[in-house]
Every structure is written in C-alpha cells, then in structure tokens.
Amino acid sequence: MGGNGGMNGEMRRIWAIGRVSMLELFRRKDMYVAVILGVVIVVPLASVNLFGIEGIVRYLREISLLLIWLFSIVIGISTAARQIPAELERRTIYPLLAKPVARREVVLGKFVGAFLASGTCLLFFYLLFVLLSGMKQGAWMTVCMFQAVLLHFLFLALLTAMALCGSIVLTHSANLALSSLVAVCMLLFGQRLPDLADRATLAASILLRAIHWLAPHFEFFDLRLRVIHGWDPVPAQAVAAATAYAAVYTALFLVLAFNLFRRKQL
C-alpha cells in the first residue's frame, strides 16, 4: 500500500472527495441550470441596443449584477447544504468513513467540491457579463470589476462554509431557509445594524448588536455599486482586509462543522 499519512496524503484525500462531489454535481446535470440562469443574466444586457437610451445602461447592468448575486446565493447554499445530508441519506458515508480518512478531511473535501462547483457557475456568469458589457458598451474588465469578482468568490467561500456547517445540525429545509435568510439580511441590513440598534429597545438592541458582532458581514464583499457607476477601485488594503475576514470566518465555520461532524453518531 502506498503512503497514507502526512500532509500530502491528507491533501490528496481532500482533493479526491472534492473532485468526486463536483463530478457528481455536474453529471447529475443540476449545474446545467446555471446555463439557463446565465441566459437570464445576459438578456438585460443584450437588450441595451433595443432601448437605445443612454441612461438605461446602468440600470440594466445593475439588474444583471443583482441576478448574478441572487443566483450565486441560491447555487452556493443549495450545493453546500446537500453534500453531507446526501451522503447520510444514501448511506455512502459508511464505506467512505470505513476507509483511512478523518472526518475532518471529509468536511474539507465536501467544502472544496461545493465551492468549486458553485465557483465554476459564478465564473461562467461573470464571463458572460464581462463579454456582453465589453461588446455592447465597450466596458471590458477593469480593476474595479476584477476586485468585484475576487470579493464575490470570497463571499461564495464563506457562504458555502456556512451552509455546510448548518447542514450538519439542521434539517435540509431549515438549513436552506436559515442560510438564505442570513445571507440576504446581512447583504441588505448588515451595514445598518448599529444604527438600528441605537434606535431599538434594550432587548432588541442587544440582539442586533450580537448579530452585528457574530454574523458574517456579507456586505463587505459587494462592490456592485462601484462597477455600475464606474467608480474608482477600493484600496488594496481594504481588499486584503476583506480577504482576511473571509478566510477567518470560513475557517471558523469549517472548524465548527468538523467538530459537529466528529461527534455525530452514525
């Protein structure tokens, strides 16, 4: 038998689990829905010339980017949330865990598979967006656009880690609902939580401040306004800080997921 231990062996096992998860997702044709969604994203941009109105371009770009964000949330959560429950439901977890693999590696492998599969869809959406924006409006890839895509990928990593963690303790539907609620609410109200807390009653204020400090601030990764209005890129330090923030929160969710899965009686 070949080498089984060490960092190299661990990385190989994580990659093998991630690759198989991704392969299954694509072969099951679940991800083909991304092509349909891609067409939906493209339609507003492709219709720019039909309107022939200068000011409407920004509005259409805004709609396209909003759809990209919406679809990435749906795909990211639904892909990550079904990884471990599907293994338990199909009982494929038993032959897998009977092999020399740590439960930590299974969680990491599932995260890699879910992130890569949903990341491929996100990349496809952005490629369509940049291609159409470039061809119709001459707005090719800018520094700001690059930052927006990078931060969106970090958002996706954080989102999939959160949904994966939720899938170990919650039922599938509860996890889908809660993860979607956290993602959408934090994107919409994350920045306004301290203001809302100032104006709320004592109990509500404590609750809002707890959410402000504990929940991941997904709005940090949203640069849509800068892309739509063609504003300057954000400082490199801000991108680095957002990257570190995403890395820390993703790691926290994965460590929590591993600890919950390690204790799970199968």
Partner: peptide
C-alpha cells in the same frame, strides 16, 4: 455495509479509483 449504495453518477472503475486514492 448491509445496504450497499454508492455514488450513482460514478462509473464503477471511477468509484474504485476514488476509494483507492482515499486508501493512499
């Protein structure tokens, strides 16, 4: 296992290759 179910969308050689990689 008692109820043997494996990854539906893998070929049997892919399934065994996957398990073999896990085993090192």
């Amino acid at each position: 296992p008692e109820v043997a179910r494996y990854y539906d969308y893998l070929r049997v050689d892919e399934l065994l290759t996957f398990y073999g990689e896990i085993c090192g």
